[in-house]
Write a protein that binds this DNA or RNA. Structure first.
Length: 828
RNA sequence: GCCGGGGUGGCGAAACUGGCAGACGCACGAGACUUAAAAUCUUGUGGCCGCAAGGCCGUGCGGGUUCGACUCCCGCCCCCGGCACCA
């Protein structure tokens, strides 16, 4: 394709000028409203591709738009620079992770600049910088003091390929979120953040984030998984020293329990087994333990269990009921033990049927109901003092009964587990604690932070924390007693760094603490956050939690970090998300070289609404390119006429002029609406395209080039062209700047005010109404705006194309919708 | 199973609060310019019938409400995403 506008030169030129003018540097300025616009910072994996471009194009568009609307816009960028790929590259190619990372950052920073992004690079942060993670270590110590960070041995998700532990959020379908290896269970010591302490608040705020997409909030609610019910004790017959604590969401069904179940790993099992059954119990446990989490939790397989000799007692009626261990009860949820109510729980029903256990119905079934377990609403039956109540009433009364006797209580359970943050890898922030023989676990002294990640460490990828093999790191003095101590050799999950970087941007070079409070108070919260849906329950949940911790530590006043969230869809090629590992990457360099940065941005913003996935299409980008070339050609070929045109057009005198001016201002209104209301980038661009189409038609049609008509024509062309350029600016900043300057404006487009629709120009003298007969369009009539209903009705009825449809029919009524349509309803 | 989001031309998509379905773009057809091609410009393009004027059908399926339904209600089907032996 030939004859492209000179995008290479103008993109270089304007990037240089923005840089020289420090156009996007910001400071706190209380005279203007602030707008904090943030895109999720990238992991410096190597190269920016069209998947990245989508996020950054959206962020840049919003930032530039808000500039033009008069906001003081904070639009920063940085690097999520710790992480496994760097370490793996080091193992494979012998490059140090620090070198690999910093080279990637240098290249990607350049790519982002070439995209034409409006970042304040003075605020760039890099998470692997000790000056950054120092503050994270300090917060870790504060969390340790408050019991929000703690160490324990637990069964964790182990990724055999990454050779490290994963948090629950980082396992998808039993596989590692990063490398898709199957995760295996492992018992290991590690550090945890007590996110469960904030479960209720995290959940409650899901209802107070109207700027978030519903799907993300739903995912977070599901993940937190609140369930309300009761917890109580089942005594064990003949063993006054023992009782089984169970959790249920259906305390109303206690009279329907016909057996009880312990998870196979439940500690009580050892105390109740008889010597005779020990061997069988051990065999059963071994069988269950052999299975992977995935196999065990597959819902459709038969439930297996083993009956124990001991009997449990239903505290409500004193009935002795059999006690089982079974694979369908999990140690990790609730109390690891349940009362089983087969009448109203399908899982219990399945198990009871297999084991030949009795089933009691405690809720009246609707007439004609033929299912298995019944979970619907109804009246309580066979339930002693609960008979006749509704389920809700019975729940309350059963809990009251438990409380009065001191054997149980109302109880809320969450699915959310504490966040395991220990990673058995090198390229991460050191956890700032030491193990002293005398003092035990001791945090590093605050004035000795940061605990710097040592440079020279053997990386084998063979397992075990690499830092353990660095004696000069491991061997240290106890900050408390001065004796010999061993440093923690695990590093922190890299999601910890990304849980607070948005705060650091507020005062990135501040040395007095994690954040300079006045700066944070000015900028926070992030007004618009933009990033991929894949972080719905990872980063976005962690960042919310961490913000609440920082708030409780007095570092920020905000309850939530992100007021509004835009979860943009993935960029798909050949049916898969664009990623290096899939080999389906369309490089930003390639597109930029061939079409220019503005074209790449325009295409991605135009091709689909931002929340939807976007199928990459080589032909689509040609369309975006054609459009920008049209704008370029039109403007540059009319420069002379436009330069001489009056700058403030009077109200147009001719009909064609008035109509055209209405299109101009209608476009301003549409584009502004689309941007303000619902991220309608694609429709905003469509509106600008329509204006350019109308511009060409007007130019070709309005032939006069001299006299009053000529002046009107020139003034309107100028107004239209300038409007196009201003509206296009946030989408395609380079071409907009260049054309704006060629039109003789010395100031940047982004120092201009966003155009405002002139209400006078929007007024229509006459409107076209659709005329329907019985709901079908039969004609159109033109009437003066605001015409009386009666007049419209007369015109419609008299219309020659309507008449035939009324012949031999009686007009029953005429519906007139002002400025829209007339519907004539007839009857035979 | 529960929760959330969807289903509109050959394709990506529009349609504000119930008021002209398919804007804008891609692809494709025809024409102009050209020795020719590319680029560019003009023009056509939901389906069926028709020379045309025009008519009929059409937003996953079946009903309903309404003068009027892509939009609201009821009942289904399918797709995508999340959660899931979570008691």
């Amino acid at each position: 394709m030939a004859d492209r506008y000179p995008f290479r030169e103008i993109e270089e030129k304007w990037q240089r000028l923005w840089d020289e003018r420090q156009q996007f540097r910001v400071t706190e300025d209380r005279s203007r409203p602030k707008f904090y616009c943030l895109e999720m910072f990238p992991y410096p994996s190597g190269r920016i591709h069209m998947g990245h471009v989508r996020v950054y194009a959206i962020g840049d568009l919003l930032a530039r738009y808000k500039w033009m609307r008069g906001y003081n816009v904070l639009h920063p960028m940085g690097w999520d620079a710790f992480g496994l790929p760097a370490e793996n590259a080091a193992i494979d190619n012998g490059v140090h992770p620090a070198i690999w990372t910093s080279e990637n950052i240098d290249y990607m920073r350049l790519q982002l600049k070439k995209m034409g992004t409006s970042y304040d690079w003075e605020r760039e942060v890099t998470t692997c910088d000790p000056a950054y993670y120092k503050w994270e270590q300090l917060i870790f110590i504060k969390m340790l003091e408050r019991g929000l960070a703690y160490r324990r041995r637990s069964r964790v998700n182990w990724c055999p390929s990454c050779q490290t532990v994963l948090a629950n959020e980082q396992v998808e379908d039993g596989r590692c979120w990063r490398c898709e290896s199957e995760v295996t269970p492992k018992d290991i010591d590690g550090w945890f953040f007590k996110i469960t302490a904030y479960a209720e608040e995290l959940l409650a705020w899901c209802d107070r984030l109207p700027g978030w997409p519903e799907r993300v909030l739903t995912m977070q609610r599901n993940w937190i998984g609140k369930s309300e019910g009761a917890e109580f004790d089942l005594p064990i017959a003949g063993r006054p020293d023992l009782k089984i604590r169970v959790f249920t969401t259906r305390p109303d069904t206690v009279f329907g329990m016909t057996y009880a179940v312990l998870a196979p790993e439940h500690p009580l099992v050892d105390q109740v087994v008889t010597p005779a059954e020990r061997a069988a119990v051990e065999a059963f446990r071994a069988e269950v333990a052999r299975e992977s989490e995935m196999e065990r939790t597959a819902a459709d397989r038969p439930k297996r269990g083993l009956r124990l000799a001991a009997m449990a007692v239903n505290p409500f009626d004193g009935a002795e009921i059999p006690l089982f261990i079974a694979d369908y009860v999990l140690m990790g949820y609730g109390t690891g033990a349940i009362m089983a109510v087969p009448g109203e729980d399908q899982r219990d029903w399945d198990f009871a049927r297999r084991q030949g256990l009795p089933i009691i119905e405690t809720v009246e079934r609707p007439a004609g109901w033929t299912g298995e377990a019944y979970t619907g609403d109804g009246v309580k039956i066979n339930s002693g003092f609960l008979d006749g109540l509704t389920i809700a009433e019975a729940k309350r009364k059963a809990i009251d009964w438990l409380v009065e006797r001191g054997v149980g209580e109302a109880r809320v359970n969450y699915r959310l587990r504490d966040w395991g943050i220990s990673r058995q890898r090198y390229w991460g922030a050191p956890i700032p604690v030491l193990y002293c023989e005398r003092c035990g676990i001791v945090p590093e002294a605050e004035d000795r932070l940061p605990v710097v990640l040592p440079r020279d460490v053997q990386l084998s990828g063979k397992g075990g924390s690499p830092l353990a093999s660095a004696p000069e790191f491991v061997n240290a003095r106890c900050p408390r007693c001065g004796g010999a101590a061993r440093r923690e050799t695990d590093t922190m999950d890299t999601f910890v760094e990304s849980s607070w970087y948005f705060l650091r941007y507020c005062s990135p070079r501040y040395e007095g603490g994690m954040v300079d409070t006045p700066a944070a108070d000015y900028w926070m919260p992030v007004d618009q956050y933009i990033g991929g849906i894949e972080h719905a329950v990872l980063h976005l949940l962690y960042a919310r939690f961490y913000t609440k911790v920082l708030r409780d530590l007095g570092l920020t006043k905000v309850d939530e970090p992100f007021t509004a969230l835009l979860s943009q869809g993935m960029v798909i090629k050949d049916g898969a998300k664009m990623s290096k590992s899939k080999g389906n990457v369309v490089s930003d360099d390639f597109i930029r070289e061939k079409y220019g940065a503005d074209t790449g941005r325009l295409f991605e913003l135009f091709a689909a609404p931002p929340e939807k996935d976007l199928e990459w299409n080589d032909q689509g980008i040609e369309g975006a390119s054609r459009f920008l070339n049209r704008v370029w050609r039109f403007t540059t070929s009319h420069l002379g006429e436009l330069a001489e045109a009056p700058r403030t057009p009077a109200a147009a005198a001719t009909d064609a002029g008035r109509a055209f001016r209405r299109v101009i201002h209608e476009t301003v209104r549409r584009v502004t609406d689309d941007l303000e209301r619902d991220f309608g980038f694609n429709t905003a661009i469509a509106a600008i395209m329509e204006l350019v189409n109308a511009l060409a038609v007007f130019e070709a049609g309005a032939g006069a080039v001299s006299g009053d008509a000529g002046r009107e024509r020139a003034a309107l062309l100028r107004e239209a062209v300038e409007t196009v350029i201003l509206l296009l600016g946030p989408f395609c900043p380079h071409i907009a700047e260049e054309l704006w300057s060629q039109l003789g404006h010395p100031e940047s487009v982004f120092r201009q005010r966003w155009p405002q629709a002139d209400p006078a120009a929007l007024v229509r003298a006459e409107v076209t109404l659709v005329v329907q007969v019985d709901g079908r369009v039969r004609s159109r009539v033109v009437v003066e705006a605001g015409a009386a209903e009666e007049r419209v009705r007369q015109l419609a009825l008299a219309d020659e194309r309507v008449q035939p449809w009324l012949a031999s029919r009686r007009v029953e009524r005429v519906v007139v919708v002002p400025s829209r349509l007339v519907n004539i309803v007839t009857r035979a």
